[in-house]
Amino acid sequence: MHFCLYTSRARIAPDDPAHADILAVARRNNAALGVTGFLHREGGHFIQYLEGPKAAIDHLLPVISCDPRHGDLTVQTSGALDAPRLGDWQIAWLGDDALSLGDLLALPDDDGPLQVDDPFDLIVFMIANASFRRGTSHVA
């Protein structure tokens, strides 16, 4: 079991219907690869946490990096997991109505690179946010 957390610049508007397509494709592909994860939109950035077989995640990252809806993909942290954090989720979507990482970490409001001192802060934020949202329609 492996995990990866990356950030990328969102190249689509926050209200673009392409978000639904991202989720549909991710759910289909992730299920076939045995990968779970969740995607968070924070201003002009995406933050995505993935977990599953290392080979599957290694396959997905270049595919996501080439997706025209993402730019400047940066792996923040990755590594081995003893046990899954997400159970049997295929993909969860955390949008603008979720808790704000910017508010939590007092990040600047500009559209510059999404930078944090410790990538583990992103994992804690994502898991806490997803756990809070688990019972809503945004989580599959």
Rank of each mutant, 00 (worst) to 15 (best):
2 H>R: 10
3 F>Q: 00
4 C>H: 03
6 Y>T: 10
9 R>P: 08
9 R>T: 14
9 R>M: 12
10 A>D: 02
10 A>F: 15
10 A>Y: 11
10 A>T: 13
11 R>M: 13
11 R>F: 14
12 I>P: 03
14 P>C: 06
15 D>I: 11
16 D>R: 08
16 D>K: 11
19 H>T: 05
22 I>C: 05
26 A>G: 14
27 R>A: 10
28 R>V: 05
31 A>K: 05
31 A>T: 04
32 A>D: 05
34 G>H: 09
35 V>W: 04
36 T>M: 09
37 G>V: 09
39 L>K: 04
40 H>Y: 12
41 R>K: 05
46 F>Q: 02
48 Q>C: 06
52 G>K: 01
54 K>F: 12
54 K>I: 15
56 A>H: 02
59 H>N: 09
63 V>I: 13
65 S>T: 13
66 C>N: 03
68 P>F: 10
69 R>N: 10
69 R>S: 07
70 H>W: 10
71 G>T: 03
75 V>G: 08
75 V>Q: 10
76 Q>V: 00
77 T>L: 15
80 A>G: 00
83 A>Y: 11
85 R>W: 14
86 L>Q: 03
86 L>Y: 06
87 G>R: 09
87 G>Q: 02
89 W>N: 02
89 W>E: 00
91 I>N: 01
93 W>E: 00
93 W>C: 01
94 L>T: 02
94 L>G: 01
97 D>G: 15
98 A>C: 14
98 A>Q: 01
100 S>T: 04
102 G>I: 04
107 L>E: 00
107 L>D: 06
108 P>Q: 11
110 D>I: 06
112 G>D: 09
114 L>H: 10
115 Q>L: 15
116 V>A: 13
117 D>C: 12
117 D>R: 12
119 P>I: 09
120 F>R: 07
121 D>Q: 13
123 I>N: 00
126 M>V: 06
126 M>A: 10
129 N>F: 00
131 S>C: 14
131 S>N: 13
131 S>V: 02
132 F>N: 08
132 F>L: 03
132 F>T: 01
133 R>Q: 09
137 S>N: 01
138 H>M: 10
138 H>F: 12
138 H>D: 13
139 V>T: 11
140 A>K: 04
